Amino acid sequence: MLDDTDRRILRHYQHDASLGPAELAELAGVTPATCARRLDRMIGAGFILANRAVIDWRAMGYEVEVSLRVTLDKTQPRAFDEFMAAARDVADVIEIQTFLGRVDVRLSVIARDMAHYQQIYRSAILTLPDIADIEALMHVARIKSDEVLPI
């Protein structure tokens, strides 16, 4: 379980994982050795999953994001597994979420422009197995996108 010191370290670390050990320790009010030891423990325990670069896909030339709500053909016993395996291989699908309810899966797809999206949709999405229904929602604005936890 995490104590108050762990939470202080995580609170600062999640806002800026590029902080050096001394800077992070100072913000958290602990020594650099304590900070490093606790970070290693939290990584080992699975509290910290990764440090990664977050790339702005718009800066890379992708202007279109579409959410596709997919309902699978539940009469097919392997529909879910087959669909997931194929969807993972579509490079322009940046996120896959599963749900309980009428919609089974949501795919987040990025494209350079609408012509590129149509090409992806026709050649890569519509060819995915076991789709019973699909609904496209065009993203207009991202109001909040935050992975920071209130710790």
Results as ranks from 00 to 15, higher is better:
Asp113Val: 01
Ile125Ser: 04
Val140Lys: 08
Ile143Asn: 04
Met1Tyr: 07
Ala87Ile: 00
Arg58Leu: 00
Asp6Pro: 05
Val105His: 03
Thr34Arg: 02
Ala132His: 13
Ala36Trp: 11
Asp73Leu: 05
Arg11Ala: 09
Ala141Gly: 11
Arg37Gly: 10
Ser18Gln: 09
Arg106Glu: 15
Asp6Ile: 05
Thr5Ile: 04
Ile9Leu: 10
Ala136Ser: 15
Gly44Ala: 11
Gln14Phe: 05
Glu147Trp: 11
Met42Ala: 01
Ile131Gln: 01
Pro129Trp: 12
Pro21Tyr: 06
His139Phe: 13
Asp81Lys: 15
Asp3Trp: 01
Tyr121Gln: 00
Glu135Ile: 09
Gly44Met: 00
Leu39Arg: 03
Gln119Trp: 07
Glu26Tyr: 06
Pro129Cys: 06
Leu19Cys: 08
Leu2Gly: 02
Ile120Met: 00
Met138Ile: 14
Glu82Val: 01
Arg78Ile: 02
Arg52Asn: 08
Asp146Met: 00
Leu128Arg: 05
Val66His: 02
Phe99Lys: 04
Arg78Gln: 12
Thr75Val: 15
Ala25Gly: 05
Ala79Asn: 08
Tyr62Cys: 03
Ile131Gly: 00
Phe47Leu: 07
Trp57Leu: 11
Arg122Leu: 14
Tyr13Asn: 03
Asp6Trp: 02
Thr98Gly: 05
Val90Leu: 02
Ile94Phe: 05
Ala115Thr: 11
Thr98Trp: 06
Lys144Ser: 05
Ala85Asn: 11
Leu149Glu: 09
Ala85Cys: 05
Gly61Asp: 10
Thr71His: 09
Leu137Val: 15
Ala124Thr: 04
Pro150Glu: 15
Val109Trp: 09
Pro32Thr: 00
Leu100Gly: 08
Arg112Ser: 02
Ala33Cys: 03
Asp16Ile: 06
Asp40Pro: 07
Ala141Asp: 14
Ala85Pro: 09
Ala28Asp: 12
Glu135Met: 08
Ile134Met: 15
Gln118Ser: 09
Arg78Phe: 12
Arg52Gln: 14
Met138Ser: 10
Ser145Val: 06
Leu49Met: 07
Tyr121Arg: 05
Ala91Thr: 13
Ala86His: 09
Ala91Asp: 15
Ala36Glu: 14
Asp104Ser: 04
Met138Thr: 15
Leu49His: 12
Arg112Thr: 12
Asp81Val: 15
Asp16Gly: 07
Met60Lys: 15
Arg7Gln: 01
